[in-house]
Design a protein around this nucleic acid. Structure first.
Length: 776
DNA sequence: GTAGGGTTAG
């Protein structure tokens, strides 16, 4: 036996030997030409041993040294190259070098080397390169196909590839099945998963442990708990991984948290060994359910079992505390972790927006390299216009480091510039993205919508719908744009409605609450009601939407009924819900009821009323003539009353003819916002109605001096001119700009006469053409 | 079989 084969068979001796001399040197020194096979085996063994011990750097060092010493003849084969490529672990620089070497040395003719090269590119985030190599392979084997399959991140694209594999006659192995099944998410994916199951049975792989586990994951992720349990129960040996498959499937997606916790409890009861995957999976559930109590219990168990110091478990604990709104607890987990990786730091950055930049610097000092997600977190931490400098700096860093070319980074920049109200820059960020995905479109649409550019939002939506498939986010944003723009025809909203039905997005609460709201804001309360009644999932947003819809339509009875029902269904009302209810009380002058609800906000729901809630209450009291109480409440408002509250108070003073209080309030309002005409107009009216013409004239003079103009009010009408116009026409009082205005006024006159004949309304033409009797 | 991010509605 040569020394080499001896060392090969005795790894412990080999290690002792290596303390004095590197494996490559040993191999080269002892390589005598006749035992090249042994020398190569020895090198390969050393490299794979380093990989097994999780030291890829050492594995690469052995490979490199072997190359350098190789002048006397190379000790390597195709396996050596495969191992070296594996050791690159996502480092594209080293990977490219070895790829180059494989080409020049002719090793790429071995299919296993080409497969390893593709795997390397896939792990280095250069999936495009891998794909390119694959498409040029003369005779790919099942491993080549599997390598590519596992690189897709889009479920649909991956499943299309599976279909392509089938039609190319590839014989699936266990790896193909388990990878394919991991993409079987959603109803369509699930259907394909079922098809795969029948072929698994035919191929005799159904007893394969890995494939079985993948089926368990697929079924439990889809909510087919019974099927998951069936596959699970049929397993002859229920190892930890089978249990974990069941658990992790239920934890993902966030719809079966309850079942996940049950499985976890059963694992404990059955005495199944728990590992870091069991813990991370069950903690994921706390994240989705935002169940703080559960998170704390599991955290305790982690400590007891000694898992809390593990990076993956610690990361998940941080994330669940953060999602449950206890950032402090997340921080303390972070500081107690013995080892932190880029995910731990990124979670910290995302959870602490205010300190994001300093945490980022700390991370760099710690020697941790940021990745795409880290930068996304950092960009997200930029909150408002005041932080524009910070945002630009981050943009600069992303350009320098090349991260700017990543789609997710581009998407984040769109949102950031939209926050700065810099829509042109947002648009630039959008245009610079090479291939815009639906998220990019969504970011742009919502940017326009939130900044009041409804028409741009709509245009963007139409382009997006032509280019790609809109999702629930897309419709949420575009519907809110249509809702707030009276000069966009309702037909667009109805088209969206049809589109939503077609795409099967109707059951999504985000979409339907936006739809409901859009119809309500555009006057079709019946449509809103219909949408609401057809909804299966009713969350806080949905309930609030319908309540505010009824409220804005003055249907107080429905408001109160819905509110009670919401509370009964254990959906917590929030600030906006209360605002809608209070607005309704205000409209109907239900002061006592309003007060009761207002007080219950702090008492029963621990909600701090905002300015708007106070405004509503002040207005309610004022309208009811309880001016003194209104004034008192106004003085209780944290930060003092705003101008709109003062103006509503002025309105009440006018209603009840209280000149003295009116003067006091008007003075405050004019001081606060001298450019707003409303304060002057209201005070003018108060004087005018009391016949105090001199004082009224003073107000008029004041207005002229300060060059305050009264804004012209206007309305919109959706005219169906048979030309398919999808915008509405705006018009204001006394407006004669429309080419058919004469005809229109004649019609108004006729309508007015008819209504008068009915005797129900006072509809003199004067009131029609001039909605505000007092003009200045 | 597990962990961080980008788009959403009242």
């Amino acid at each position: 036996m040569t020394l080499l084969s001896y060392l090969h068979c005795n790894p412990s001796k080999s290690l002792t030997f290596q303390r004095f001399c590197s494996p490559s040197r040993i191999a080269h020194k002892l390589f005598d030409g006749s035992s090249q096979r042994n020398a190569t085996t020895y090198i390969n063994h050393s490299i794979s041993e380093s990989l097994r011990r999780n030291s890829p750097a050492k594995a690469l060092a052995i490979f490199t040294e072997n190359l350098q010493l190789g002048s006397s003849g190379r000790i390597m084969d195709e396996v050596t190259l495969c191992l070296a490529l594996k050791a690159c672990r996502g480092d594209p620089r080293r990977g490219c070098q070895i790829h180059g070497f494989s080409i020049t040395s002719g090793f790429t003719s071995f299919i296993c080397v080409s497969n390893a090269v593709m795997g390397m590119y896939r792990n280095a985030g250069r999936f495009g390169n891998a794909l390119c190599i694959f498409e040029n392979l003369v005779d790919p084997d099942v491993v080549s196909w599997n390598t590519i399959l596992s690189g897709f991140d889009d479920n649909q694209v991956a499943l299309n590839f599976v279909v392509r594999m089938k039609s190319a006659g590839v014989v699936f192995d266990a790896f193909t099945y388990s990878t394919a099944l991991s993409f079987c998410v959603g109803s369509e994916g699930f259907r394909l998963g079922l098809q795969l199951q029948s072929t698994v049975v035919k191929s005799g792989l159904e007893s394969d442990v890995v494939v079985g586990n993948s089926f368990i994951t697929m079924y439990s992720r889809d909510g087919s708990f019974k099927d998951a349990k069936r596959v699970f129960d049929e397993k002859p040996v229920k190892d930890m991984i089978s249990w974990n498959s069941l658990l992790s499937g239920l934890s993902q997606g966030g719809n079966f948290g309850f079942e996940a916790v049950l499985v976890f409890r059963e694992m404990m009861r059955e005495g199944v060994e728990l590992d870091h995957v069991s813990f991370t999976s069950v903690i994921t559930t706390c994240c989705h359910e935002t169940d703080l109590k559960l998170a704390r219990q599991i955290h305790g168990l982690c400590i007891k079992r000694g898992y809390e110091t593990l990076v993956s478990v610690g990361n998940m604990l941080m994330s669940s505390y953060w999602k449950c709104g206890v950032v402090e607890a997340a921080k303390s987990v972070f500081y107690q972790m013995s080892e932190r990786n880029v995910i731990s730091w990124t979670t910290m950055i995302s959870a602490n927006k205010d300190a994001a930049v300093s945490i980022f610097h700390e991370m760099r000092l710690d020697g941790v390299v940021p990745n795409e997600v880290t930068f996304v977190g950092l960009i997200n931490a930029v909150k408002c216009y005041e932080q524009i400098k910070k945002g630009l700096k981050i943009h600069g860093i992303c350009i320098k480091t090349g991260f700017v070319s990543k789609v997710s980074i581009g998407n984040s920049f769109i949102t950031m510039y939209a926050k700065f109200e810099a829509l042109e820059d947002a648009r630039k960020a959008f245009d610079e993205i090479k291939i815009q995905e639906i998220i990019s479109w969504n970011a742009m649409i919502s940017g326009y919508a939130q900044n009041g550019f409804s028409h741009e939002a709509l245009k963007m939506f139409l382009s997006a719908a032509a280019e790609t498939m809109p999702n629930e986010y897309t419709f949420g944003s575009v519907l809110s744009a249509i809702a707030s723009a009276e000069d966009i025809s309702l037909k667009h909203g109805q088209r969206c409605h049809a589109h939503i039905l077609k795409l099967g997005l109707y059951s999504c609460p985000v979409v339907s609450s936006a739809l409901l709201d859009m119809y309500a804001k555009r006057g079709s309360i019946n449509e809103s009601e219909k949408v609401f009644n057809e909804m299966s999932v009713r969350n806080q947003f949905v309930w609030t939407s319908i309540i505010s819809a009824y409220s804005s339509h003055g249907d107080i009875e429905s408001v109160m009924n819905s509110f009670q029902e919401m509370v009964k269904e254990n959906i917590a009302p929030d600030l906006i819900t209360f605002l809608s209810v209070l607005t309704a009380c205000n409209r109907k002058g239900m002061v006592e009821k309003g007060y009761e609800i207002f007080n219950s906000m702090t008492k029963d729901y621990n909600l701090e009323p905002s300015h708007e809630h106070y405004s509503c209450m002040v207005d309610m009291l004022g309208r009811a003539g309880r001016l003194k109480e209104a004034e008192e409440l106004m003085n209780e408002v944290p930060g003092g009353p705003g101008v709109s509250m003062l103006q509503s108070m002025l309105g009440s003073c006018r209603l009840h003819g209280n000149v003295k209080m009116g003067e006091k309030v008007a003075e405050l309002a004019m001081e606060m916002k001298p450019e707003l005409s409303g304060s002057y107009v209201l005070m003018y009216n108060i004087y005018a109605e009391k016949g105090q013409w001199e004082e009224a004239a003073e107000i008029r003079k004041k207005m002229r001096k300060k060059e305050v103009r009264k804004e012209v009010g206007s309305s919109w009408i959706d005219v169906d001119d048979n030309e398919g116009s999808l915008t509405t026409l705006g018009f204001s009082s006394g407006d004669t700009t429309h080419p058919k205005s004469e005809e229109i006024y004649r019609m108004v006159e006729i309508l007015g006469l008819e209504m008068n004949l009915e005797g129900k309304f006072d509809c003199s033409l004067e009131n029609f053409s001039c909605r505000n009797p007092v003009s200045l």
